[in-house]
Design a binder for these strands. Sequence first.
DNA 1: ACAATAAATGTTATCGGTTACATTGTTTAT
DNA 2: ATAAACAATGTAACCGATAACATTTATTGT
Lengths: 341, 341
Amino acid sequence: MSNIREVADLAGVSVATVSRTLQQPELVSPKTRAKVTRAIEQLNYKPNLMAVKFRSGKTHNIVVLVPTVANVFFARVIRGMQEAAAAEGYSLLLVNTMGDNATEQNYARMIHTSQADGVVQLRAFNPFNDNDADEQGLLPMVNACEILDTPQCPTVSLDNRLAAAAMTEHLVELGHQHIAMIKGPASSPLTRERMLGFKDALQEAGLKYCEELMFDGDFTLQSGYDAADRILSQSQPVSAIFCENDEMALGAISRLKAAGLRIPEDISVSGFDNIAFAKFSDPPLTTIAQPAEEFGETAINLLIDVLKGKAKRAVKVILPYQLIIRNSTGPAPAQPVNLTR
Amino acid sequence: MSNIREVADLAGVSVATVSRTLQQPELVSPKTRAKVTRAIEQLNYKPNLMAVKFRSGKTHNIVVLVPTVANVFFARVIRGMQEAAAAEGYSLLLVNTMGDNATEQNYARMIHTSQADGVVQLRAFNPFNDNDADEQGLLPMVNACEILDTPQCPTVSLDNRLAAAAMTEHLVELGHQHIAMIKGPASSPLTRERMLGFKDALQEAGLKYCEELMFDGDFTLQSGYDAADRILSQSQPVSAIFCENDEMALGAISRLKAAGLRIPEDISVSGFDNIAFAKFSDPPLTTIAQPAEEFGETAINLLIDVLKGKAKRAVKVILPYQLIIRNSTGPAPAQPVNLTR
DNA sequence: ACAATAAATGTTATCGGTTACATTGTTTAT
DNA sequence: ATAAACAATGTAACCGATAACATTTATTGT
């Protein structure tokens, strides 16, 4: 691999001139420029970017902490980040953290070892210590999708509470009075927000919130299936299930159908995220669409602002949701179906 | 950010001693070691890994070219890679290439600019020039999942032809004589291999291969839906559809059900990949399971072998497939159903 | 006790660029 | 014609760690 000195020698100039030819060609006379360019081509010279990054102290790398890349929603977010990063000359270091705090702290440490300039965190967990903040108290981080309650960095989120309320209203308008909810992990703020929105809407409609109709899941298909199983084996009437994401909704539908229930005639099911499969399931899933790619794009752009020192901690971008009504939700049956037949 | 010199000064030793304390502590006397360790803690010193990488010429970065991270199968492969890489101290630079050759060449160039040591390519495309090979004619690359016909690097693949033949045999054994196929993009070797396996099995069974029953798709849900639409509007009888991946199978099922067909009573549908959704679809999908995580793991380990100079070009790992029979395939109807009702 | 050997530590060149500053060559203004 | 201003190019310090080699200190054998 040739270096800048070899190029300089071949062109009969100094290394500074070679560097200038590449960085600020206007400072180099056309004659010299031509000589240098020829030498570069002849040697097939490529600047060692590791050296540049080391010298400049800027890596142009961004660590992205993803709970699970195997999640269809995150995959879209990642695509959005990728594009925004590429446009600004940044590379992404994607890390599949499996939601493990220690792993996240480990990778966030790449900031300290000068391997990356900043972090995008897709989970409500602060992988830094407080003394990692800069003069203005800003961490080199952006928190997106699932955000911290008291973030020390810009955030990008959805108004999950409002969105969940909107979905609940939709169910209430269809006449549902006994709505079960399949929740995400209790540790996730998304779960809490969506649950609060659910409660808000119930209260608004004068319906009572019933703790026994709240079921735990972990955002996977299997957990949706299992939760539906528990719903089927309890005694309360239920005519609709609000699932906190599409995967769990699809898992639940699978179980309900296995029990011979018709959707939405016997029971309505709704999701959250509008993943690609939602449109093609049987029946197509009523859900909340999130602008996933835009999450990624916004997060990266905010982070670059932070890195350039032109961002305030207070920046909180809230992206719009959209209620997508398909066929998995319908009018409540006149008689609540007996689930435990 | 403190550097090794500040630590040396505070501890009252030379920089070499500090470096040794971290790299080969057995060469440093316990007394000195203690002094240095104390200074390191006091200054909260973290070695600048960018400097280390620059100095050593080894980045411990691996570029991963992924056609689409939004693909559930690739997401699993990525998880496998992540784990294997972490175990060996490597970081992944994931790139969502959207199958664009220019983008892939661009990112493969990171090898030349010393930003990464090697590349894992998940598509049958060589992003390098031939003169990028090392002395033994090896590229710093491993090709996994969809592999090149004449690779200049180790490969990890499935025997797609055999697997497709196995699936076809399964359909034939159920009595199907008119089997349509929804293919991937013609540019993909996977498509060709699976098609050849399909043909092999038809021939073996004494059935004739029929060009009009081959339909194009691009591995997305929507393309499966669209292809099924075309199948419904043509005149040949069809009692089973072999889809080259699960997404297309699920898209096709969606369309077939919309036409009032029952699966598998009226028509059987099979997939390929065994993504998580396959188990929870209605009906659950008959498919070929691939050890996705193992693909990733093997690819990374092979690449690390290449980088260490202990791999031969000829290494071709072939991982096992598994035929998973669920309910989307069943006995052929006595009378072929008239699709265009 | 003293050379021979081993262990511990220090000095410094090096990796490949960038850039402040120095130097040389060329115009322009008077 | 000559000083001043400017353009073009060169020289060398620097970023932070590593490691070859040099030097100092401790240990061993006789």
